[in-house]
Nucleic acid binder design. Sequence first.
DNA 1: AAGCCGGGGGC
DNA 2: GCCCCAGGCTT
Length: 330
Amino acid sequence: MPWKGVKDPYKIWVSEIILQQTQVSQGIPYYNRFLKAFPTVMSLANSPVDSVLALWTGLGYYSRARNLHKAAVHIVEHHNGKFPKSFEEIKELPGIGDYTASAISSFAYGLPYAVVDANVIRIIARYYGIEEEIHTSKVRKQVKEKTQALLTKKKPAAFNQAIMDFGATVCKPKEPLCEDCVMSSSCIAFSLDKVALIPRKKTKKPRRDRYFHYLEIIQNKKLIIRQRGEKDIWHSLYELPYLETNSKRSMSKKQIESYLKKELGISGISNLSKLDKSYKQTLSHQFIHGIFYKVHLKEDLPRFKAPYLHVTVSKLKKLAIPKLIDWYIG
DNA sequence: AAGCCGGGGGC
DNA sequence: GCCCCAGGCTT
């Protein structure tokens, strides 16, 4: 890992945010690109948030990128551009919760805060035989207290790194290496033969299907795009205009014309064709079905009002776009 | 407490 | 396909 042995709190911060819900191998290229583009807190704070988002394209959980930028501005305004040095000040930053504040505090400053991530919860729940459902504040608190008590006060960073490594390599979610484990003789889950049952998790709701009927409206080698708003998925990302339905049934020419008239003041489609290929993207709690149509207009485009823009495809590729749009434009 | 927010890798 | 993940924020 490129951040191994690094003490710079800024770099540790960036790596921890990237690694939230993200595999190391997936995060490494993003980490390298990020530090090259934004080598310091100051450079991050002084860059447009859109440039941070663009670098985040394809990584998911885009609020992480927006919060990184927001926090950098906060550090410049409230800490004179120097990364804060206390756990409380670190945890105040947007996008930094208990885990990340503990990770930065211990790795950068050697402060005695135990990290509690999915690895730690799994290890502690198995070792102490916590059979309850783990997504409760009671269990979270219990795990935090037990881990904090175990933390080696002289070497918090080594302890935190070690317990997470142990979870990733030995006390794994599936097929843990109990036969080779030095802890198994005192592990309650192992002695009760309940390793596979712990940690216990909630059964999750099925994902919802959504159908986005995207319109590729090309004129003069440019196409119409828009920036997404705050409410829904993909906050601030760019995409094509679309109509949403709850079935995969194609939109009629009439429906699309009505939409274009209302939304963009466009009247009259000269030709409409639906593409054979569609795309399905899986999000944490939704399936997004992307269905694409090419639209040719009778008349010239009118002036657009926000959030619509008129750009070339190569320009669009440089903006922050959802994976689905990336698949489509290639 | 529950819901929301992406994406890739392992099996 | 389903499960997993070096979480945090909003409701």
